[in-house]
Design a protein around this nucleic acid. Sequence first.
DNA 1: ATTTGTGCAAATCGTTTGCATCTGA
DNA 2: TCAGATGCAAACGATTTGCACAAAT
Lengths: 143, 143
Amino acid sequence: MIDTATNQTSRSNVSNVLRQAGLRPTRQRVSLAELLFSKGDRHISAELLHEEAVGADVPVSLATVYNTLHQFTEAGLLREVAIDGTKTYFDTNVSDHHHFFIEGENRVVDIPGDGVGIGEVPEAPEGMEIVRVDVIVRVRQKS
Amino acid sequence: MIDTATNQTSRSNVSNVLRQAGLRPTRQRVSLAELLFSKGDRHISAELLHEEAVGADVPVSLATVYNTLHQFTEAGLLREVAIDGTKTYFDTNVSDHHHFFIEGENRVVDIPGDGVGIGEVPEAPEGMEIVRVDVIVRVRQKS
DNA sequence: ATTTGTGCAAATCGTTTGCATCTGA
DNA sequence: TCAGATGCAAACGATTTGCACAAAT
């Protein structure tokens, strides 16, 4: 895995994506992108991604993780999920979908399939346009 | 307005509500409750309420504002609206409804009437039950 | 060579907490 | 009286920022 040659293909794919997003494919960005996008859909906090990176022999500073997450978000590679309170989650699934938030565990999960549709999207107020509709279904362990 | 006699009625109404909620009607709580509930539906942050109180000759500490907002929330007098990570908003409208979030202005507005219905509420995952469904329609100034 | 990114530590912001002091019943 | 409430300042956790150094084109 650490062998550069065997990683050639995967790394250069990532590199191209970054380049197309106008971001220099630096070591850190490439590694973080691989962590983010090689495991299916994820909802991850900066802190957690940082730990993962460090654990994977990719020592990155937390500041860089934050920078990178925001840059990826601007580039449309990630979506910020504002759920609640303290932590910010980044969603690797950029398509139109909604979320369960598991209270107590503080976990975010995609709502599968087309589980929800908003019946009628309301009119935006005077002179406003809708940017996005977020639906968060808060769930808890059944008692 | 500062005359105690003329405020008798309004203040004692608030007092009773607080008492019924199991909260001592202290000076600060009564005053904050009046600020909160005498102007129709509001979406207010702790900081803003604090400024308002101080401006209205009700010097309260910020810590007490936080305490009070949380106590009111537990008592069902307020609802916490999680929009955006950083700030927490408290909604004086406790009934079932959803919100516009005005980006750029960072303002929260109730969605009027029955503007939205969630088409189909999705099944909660295995062993989970739905606590609440939040719909946030993010809007911005039309360009 | 120039531009852009990175790491560190300090700074910031909203919120919470510990504790001594006050207050309402 | 005395449990419960308040105020202050210090503590906190997540995120951001400033700046010297390093890496990418």
